[in-house]
Design a protein around this nucleic acid. Structure first.
Length: 213
DNA sequence: ACCCAGGGTCATA
DNA sequence: TATGACCATGGG
């Protein structure tokens, strides 16, 4: 079992995922911040609040008082830090003259720019690049590590850049493919047991080496 | 009552 | 450089 076979098998088993539903690229940016260590259903409530107040754009969020913003995004948790993080990204966007301008940079320029913002780490940056800017970077997360480890594809601890490089080496850069693969890994990880080494209902039972995790 | 979720930062050793 | 504490709500 290698990375490419895993992708093919996930795709044929679960089918294409309609991941990261959002009406605009900026909504993806906001969602990427709000979903940090947080269930997506809680993020939806926060985004709904922002839409209801009609402030789902960089300028409006910057104009909104911190206390008000915190209250609106409360359901997403960590609302104190996330309100500040949202403001910092919006600040960057405005300084660049808009999302289009920011996203016109090369993938690597864009990634290092995003990473320079306090509150945006590697996963959040890659999610923005892949799902909002539509550039081919692979998004790693703990689910990716869990599934890879379970199947013996990755040995060792959680190394974000290492796992990312592995996938990008095995699978040539393609936006749709990277988007699908990440989505499939997450959906699959949610369906398998977290602690049990081997899950009886796992569709990968035949190739799972039963690695304890 | 406990565990965790579509992470990241900061302090400590 | 490598762990650990911390952030906070909502659902199982």
């Amino acid at each position: 079992m290698n990375v490419r076979d895993l992708y093919k098998r996930l795709l044929s088993y679960y089918g294409p995922q309609n991941w990261w539903p959002a009406e605009t690229p900026f909504e993806v940016v906001v969602g990427a911040i709000l979903t940090q260590n947080t269930a997506w259903r809680n993020v939806e409530k926060a985004i709904e609040n922002l839409k209801r107040e009609d402030i789902l754009d960089p300028a409006s969020i910057l104009e909104t008082p911190g206390d008000v913003l915190k209250e609106l995004i409360r359901p997403a948790g960590f609302y104190n830090q996330k309100a500040e993080r949202l403001k910092r990204v919006c600040q960057l966007i405005v300084e660049c003259g808009g999302l289009e301008e920011l996203f016109s940079r090369s993938l690597n320029e864009l990634r290092s720019t995003l990473l320079s913002v306090n509150g945006i780490g590697p996963e959040t940056a890659d999610a923005i690049i892949l799902y909002a800017a539509n550039k081919p970077t692979f998004v790693v997360d703990r689910y990716t590590h869990r599934v890879f480890t379970r199947l013996g594809i990755w040995k060792g601890g959680y190394d974000y850049e290492g796992i990312k490089k592995l996938v990008e080496t095995e699978i040539s850069p393609d936006v749709s493919t990277y988007q699908e693969f990440h989505a499939l890994l997450d959906e699959h990880a949610k369906r398998i047991c977290r602690k049990t080494p081997l899950c009886e209902s796992c569709p990968f039972k035949d190739v799972c080496p039963s690695v304890s995790f």
